[in-house]
């Protein structure tokens, strides 16, 4: 089923993207062609196939619970234009 431009625009907004008319038209074509390509999956019986998550039976390594604070916090602050004293600031959010 083809996605309409309205649906694609909704998805874009969900991703915090405002599209120009031209971008939207491109995105609609792109998504629909892409979904067409993915329709091939329907030819396969995937019922009993495990989803792949990692290349091999890899185990999550675990880090020791030992404090090692980052030494260059100032460099992080320096990269933001939204610093106010010790805080980062954003436009006011009304509390829900």
């Amino acid at each position: 089923m083809k996605l309409t431009s309205e649906e694609v625009n909704d998805i874009a907004l969900e991703s915090r993207l405002l599209l120009t008319e031209q971008e939207l038209a491109g995105a609609v074509r792109y998504i629909n062609n892409f979904l067409d390509m993915l329709d091939r999956f329907k030819e396969l019986d995937l019922q009993n196939v495990e989803p792949f998550s990692f290349a091999e039976a890899l185990e999550c390594p675990l880090r020791e619970d030992k404090v090692n604070d980052f030494s260059n916090i100032q460099a992080i602050f320096d990269e933001s234009e939204h610093v106010d004293g010790q805080f980062f600031k954003v436009p006011r959010i009304m509390e829900e």
């Binding site: 999956f41 396969l44 196939v49 495990e50 290349a55």
Partner: peptide, 15 residues
Amino acid sequence: DEYYVAATKVRTLIA
């Protein structure tokens, strides 16, 4: 399920 999960399963078949 139709796309993302299916793709992770196809990936298993490919591996």
